[in-house]
Computed example of a mutant assay.
Amino acid sequence: MTTHVWDYLPEFERERADILDAVDTVFRSGQLILGASVRGFEQEFAAYHGIKHCVALDNGTNAVTLALQSLGVGPGDEVITVANTAAPTVVAIDGAGATPVFVDVRPADYLMDTTQVAEAITPRTKAIVPVHLYGQCVDLAPLRALAAEHGLLIVEDCAQSHGARHHGEPAGTLGDAAAFSFYPTKVLGAYGDGGAVLTGSAEADRNLRRLRYYGMEHGYYVTEVPGHNSRLDEVQAEILRRKLRRLDDYIAARQRVARRYEEALADLAAPGGLELPAVSPGNNHVYYLYVLRHPQRETILERLREQDIALNVSYRWPVHLMSGFAHLGYAKGSLPVTERLAGQIFSLPMYPCLPTGLQDKVIGALRTVLGSL
């Protein structure tokens, strides 16, 4: 049997009764769209973060797009972000009509290099989208200072950081708005697509509720600007309500898996060789992914495949070099750290119900391969 980086079936077997009860609850409710389950999840997800407003949406990509639009970001504006991220971050900025502008990431933790942001600001800059990558937070303090100085907005991309904290503050509560994805692999994952935006702004909340419903407030009448059909499904909302109660348990389980990896591989780590994940000061890392780095990655992956161990690379293709974004004008070499990482990083299996035996298999195989290089 091939070992993969993620598998929902062990968790489903453990939680099957609750998941099926969630489905039954919705089907018996008499309301399948924007009903009690969506409202309940919005209230509970906002309360978990200690923030006023949550608007549940159909996916994380639209969460970024609608968050930007709700704050007035659109055509003619520039949005600063990173290229070491999943393409949907940048697709979403483009979807809002804005122009993505990239800065590089730090070589230690792969997060936005906030020291480069000031130089990237132009008269057209309207917002910054820091990506809380792999399960830990960008330090937003310098970005908030820049935002205050230049009148900019901050929209956090929290697709990979549910429950993560920076100096005790939850990811998603430190900017003007925050976008979440509930894609099944996420720390808080649905059984299909889902997303949400958190914000402390009542105006942004009202805008988001219009934008997710065609631009309508009451009946079939578009009040201000056309919106989208971006509603979270009632079934997914009810499943997420149940799973939200277990989010801290999921995080603790992921952290246990991460500790076992670190204990098993620490003696092989060396500069210029295997690099383990670095947790930045003040961060509580929730390990959406457990990302390693090695200059001979392709050899490692090939030899592990021979042992039926299939690992992921997040991300093999930097967004700024994708042909779909060639119009932005970034040449190879323009983001050297991002480009170097793209050739060296890879992810080990990481999910709360990862069987110990499978983790041991991966550790043993990886140690053997590393020892032969």
Score class of each variant (00 low, 15 high):
Gly192Ala: 13
Leu208Pro: 01
Glu262Gly: 01
Tyr8Cys: 04
Glu149Trp: 13
Val103Cys: 10
Val23Gln: 07
Arg209Lys: 15
Arg28Val: 00
Gly35Thr: 02
His294Leu: 14
Ile251Met: 13
Ala118Phe: 02
Leu348Pro: 01
Pro142Cys: 06
Thr125Gly: 11
Asp193Leu: 15
Gln69Glu: 12
Arg210Ile: 06
Phe346Glu: 06
Asp58Phe: 01
Val369Lys: 02
Ala190Leu: 00
Leu276Asn: 05
Tyr214Ala: 09
Arg259Lys: 14
Gly95Met: 14
Arg144Ile: 01
Leu111Glu: 01
Ile80Ala: 06
Ala269Lys: 09
Phe27Lys: 12
Ser161Ile: 11
Lys361Ser: 08
Pro75Glu: 15
Gly135Leu: 05
Glu263Met: 12
Tyr250Asp: 01
Val26Leu: 12
Glu203Phe: 12
Val91Phe: 06
Gln43Arg: 15
Gln136Thr: 10
Ala278Phe: 15
Val257His: 12
Glu119Ser: 15
Arg246Ala: 07
Asp248Gly: 10
Val187Ile: 13
Glu169Lys: 14
Leu335Gln: 08
Glu156Cys: 14
Asp21Pro: 00
Lys361His: 12
Ser334Glu: 03
Tyr183Lys: 00
Glu203Tyr: 09
Ile309Val: 11
Ser37Arg: 03
Glu149Phe: 05
Leu32Met: 12
Glu203Ile: 06
Phe102His: 06
Gly168Cys: 12
Gly371Cys: 14
Tyr315Asp: 04
Val138Met: 10
Tyr290Asn: 00
Asp94Ser: 14
Ala177Pro: 01
Ala127Gln: 02
Val90Thr: 13
Leu358Arg: 14
Gly273Thr: 10
Leu348Arg: 04
Leu289Lys: 02
Asp7Cys: 15
Gly333Glu: 09
Asn62Gly: 12
Arg242His: 11
Leu66Thr: 04
Tyr8Ser: 12
Ala148Thr: 01
Leu198Ile: 13
Val82Tyr: 09
Ile345Leu: 07
Val64Thr: 07
Lys332Asp: 12
Ala127Asn: 02
Phe182Tyr: 13
Arg246Lys: 14
Ile363Pro: 02
Val101Thr: 14
Asp157Asn: 15
Ala127Met: 08
Thr89Trp: 04
Lys186Phe: 07
Gly343Met: 11
Leu34His: 09
Trp6Cys: 00
Pro75Arg: 15
Ala252Gly: 00
Ala269Tyr: 08
His320Met: 03
Val26Met: 10
Gln344Tyr: 08
Val73Lys: 13
Ser181Gly: 07
Ile121Leu: 14
Ala83Arg: 04
Thr3Arg: 06
Gln296Ser: 11
Thr2Ile: 05
Leu265Gly: 01
Arg241Leu: 08
Asp139His: 11
Asn207Phe: 01
Ala159Tyr: 00
Val64Ser: 01
Gly35Arg: 10
His294Phe: 13
Gly60Phe: 07
Val369Phe: 08
Gly282Asn: 10
Ser372Phe: 09
Tyr191Asp: 05
Leu57Thr: 03
Asn284Met: 09
Ala147Thr: 01
Pro75Lys: 15
Leu208His: 02
Ala258Phe: 10
Thr356Lys: 12
Ile19Ala: 04
